[in-house]
């Protein structure tokens, strides 16, 4: 596991609202978990209006990443397994 900014990540969409990010993850990801604001993922504390929806598809994690000047990006990062294990252990799975 490393910090998000040092990992290869794909920007799925940019300039989304926190609501649009949540809806995208719920609609498009096969496995959805909900975490509180401030949850640490790839060494970053997630910013957002709780609950934050995080998606898992295979070994990829989709989640919102907010920058103060640029708004919220929906990004996808390949995980070596550690973050997915932690999400499944500590986050609430959405049916």
């Amino acid at each position: 596991m490393g910090c998000l900014e040092s990992l290869p990540y794909e920007v799925i969409q940019r300039g989304l609202s926190y609501r649009e990010c949540r809806e995208y993850v719920r609609r498009n990801c096969s496995e959805v978990h909900e975490v509180p604001a401030g949850y640490k993922l790839f060494d970053k504390h997630l910013i957002g209006v709780p609950p934050l929806a995080i998606g898992i598809d295979g070994d990829e994690i989709t989640f919102p990443y907010t920058k103060p000047c640029y708004g919220t990006f929906l990004v996808k990062v390949r995980d070596d397994g550690e973050e997915i294990r932690r999400l499944r252990a500590f986050a609430t799975r959405r049916a």
């Binding site: 604001a37 709780p50 907010t66 708004g71």
Partner: peptide, 15 residues
């Protein structure tokens, strides 16, 4: 002054 600010405020309220 933007949507990101709302996200920061909600996060601050939570933590």
């Amino acid at each position: 002054h933007n949507d990101a600010g709302v996200s920061y405020a909600a996060t601050t309220a939570a933590i």
